[in-house]
Design a protein around this nucleic acid. Structure first.
Lengths: 215, 215
DNA sequence: CGCGATATCATACGCAGGTTTCGGTCTGGC
DNA sequence: GCCAGACCGAAACCTGCGTATGATATCGCG
C-alpha cells in the first residue's frame, strides 16, 4: 500500500524504548527510513532530516508535553509535518493539536495501516512543501543580494509609484532611480514588472507608507 | 466577559428542543442573537444571517450527521464558522471536524463559559472574514464588468507580456491592445500595473499558456 | 594605497505605454 | 430601422522606461 512511494524519513519521538523500537521496525519494513529519539531534545540536536520527512510524536513524554513541543517547533519555524499519537487522549487535546497544525492525531490502539497511511500522507505533504521551499529559498537569496537602495526602490516600484515619484520620495534624480531599478530587476531575475510584484507579494515586501485600498 | 463585543448572530442546530431552547436563552442573555433550528434543512432554508454569525452544530442530528453537514456547507461555499458540539465524540471525529475547518469541538458536558468563549471567537472570525469579503466583492464586480477581450488582455498583461506580444498572440494590432488595456485598467480601478497584478493574483486570474517559473 | 562595491548624476537615444481623434464593422434590443 | 455597445484599426502625440556612455564620490578591505 505504501511501498510505491519514494522513501521518506520518519522521526519518531517516544520515551518508551520498546514502543520506539517496534514502530521503527514497522516503518523500515514498509520502506521508510526511521530516526528514533527518546526525548525531544535528542531530536532537536540531530536536526530535521534533509529529505522529505515527518514527525511521529507521542503526547506523553518524559521531559515535555508533546503538544507543547509541537508548538515550540512551530514557534521556531520548523515546519515538519507532525502526527501525534497518544494512549490517553481527549477531545480538547485533539482540538489543540489540530489547531497547532498537526496533520493527524492517532489514539492508541491504532492499526499498522492507520499509522502507515498517516505517515505516507505526511511525507507527501512534506515533499510538496520542500519543493515549494526550494523556489522560495532562491527568491530570498536574490532579494538578499540587493543593496539597501535597490531594496528601497523595489518597495516603491511594487507599490505602483513612477520613477519620478520614487525619485522625489528618496530625494534622488530620476536617472539614479532608473539605474537602481534596472540593477534590481536583473538581480531579482524578474522578466517583467508583473513578475516582480508577484515575487514581492510572496516575500512580503510592502512599503506601508503608501496607502493601498485593496488586499 | 462577552458583553462588550458587538452583537452577533449564532445559528444553533440541534434536534433536542429542550437543549436548543436552553442554549438559545443562554446566548440571548449574553448579548447574542440566536437563530434556532431543529434540522440542517431548516437552517439552509432560512439562509445564513446578514450579520457576523457562526454555527453551533450538534454532531448527532435526526436526518444527517453533523460532520457530513459541515462538509456539505464547505462544498457549497458557505463559509460560516462552525463550532461542533457532541455528547458522544471521539478523537477521529474531532480530527475529521478540525480538518474540515471547524473552529472548535465541544464535548458535552461543557461550561457556559467555554461555549460563550468559543462563540465569541467564532463571531470575531466571521466579522473579519466579512470585512475582507466586502472588498473582494467589489473586485469581482469590477472584473465581471470587463468584456471578454478586456479579460483576455488582462490575463496576458499580468502574465508580463508586452502590448506587442499580446497583439501577436491575439492577432490584433498593437493599438487595439492598448485601447482594451486602457479600458480594462479604468474598469478595474487599478492605479498601476502593480495594483492590477495584485488584483489578478487575488482573483486567481492567470493565463496558463504562459510558463511561469515561480509561485 | 588601490580596488571594488555602492551610490550619485547628466546627456542622449530608442522603445514601450497611454490617450485622443477619427474611422469602420457587427450584433442585439427597443 | 435605429441606437448602444463591443470590437477593430490608423495617425499623432506625450509620457514613461531602460540603457549606454561617462563622470564623481564614498567606504571598507586587503
Amino acid at each position: 500500500m505504501s511501498g510505491e512511494t519514494p522513501p521518506g524519513c520518519v522521526c519518531v519521538i517516544d520515551d518508551d524504548a520498546e514502543v520506539l523500537g517496534s514502530i521503527g521496525s514497522l516503518l523500515r519494513s514498509n520502506g521508510f527510513q526511521a530516526a528514533l529519539y527518546d526525548t525531544p531534545e535528542a531530536f532537536l540536536l540531530a536536526g530535521v532530516p534533509q529529505t522529505a520527512s515527518c514527525l511521529l510524536l507521542d503526547v506523553r513524554l518524559r521531559g515535555e508535553n508533546g503538544l507543547d513541543f509541537q508548538e515550540r517547533l512551530a514557534a521556531r519555524g520548523i515546519a515538519i509535518p507532525v502526527i501525534l499519537i497518544t494512549g490517553h487522549g481527549d477531545i480538547p487535546m485533539t482540538v489543540r493539536a489540530m489547531r497547532a497544525g498537526a496533520l493527524d492525531f492517532l489514539p492508541k490502539p491504532f492499526t499498522e495501516e492507520q499509522m502507515l497511511a498517516a505517515v505516507a500522507t505526511a511525507i507527501g505533504v512534506d515533499r510538496q512543501r520542500r519543493g515549494e521551499a526550494a523556489g522560495h529559498a532562491h527568491l530570498r537569496q536574490c532579494y538578499e543580494a540587493l543593496t539597501p537602495r535597490e531594496r528601497e526602490v523595489m518597495g516603491l516600484v511594487v507599490a505602483g509609484l513612477m520613477n519620478k515619484q520614487i525619485a522625489a520620495r528618496m530625494t534622488l534624480s530620476e536617472i539614479t532611480v532608473k539605474i537602481h531599478r534596472g540593477n534590481m530587476m536583473r538581480k531579482m531575475e524578474a522578466q517583467s514588472l508583473a513578475d516582480l510584484v508577484r515575487m514581492a507579494e510572496f516575500l512580503g515586501i510592502r512599503d506601508d507608507s503608501i496607502h493601498r485600498f485593496n488586499i
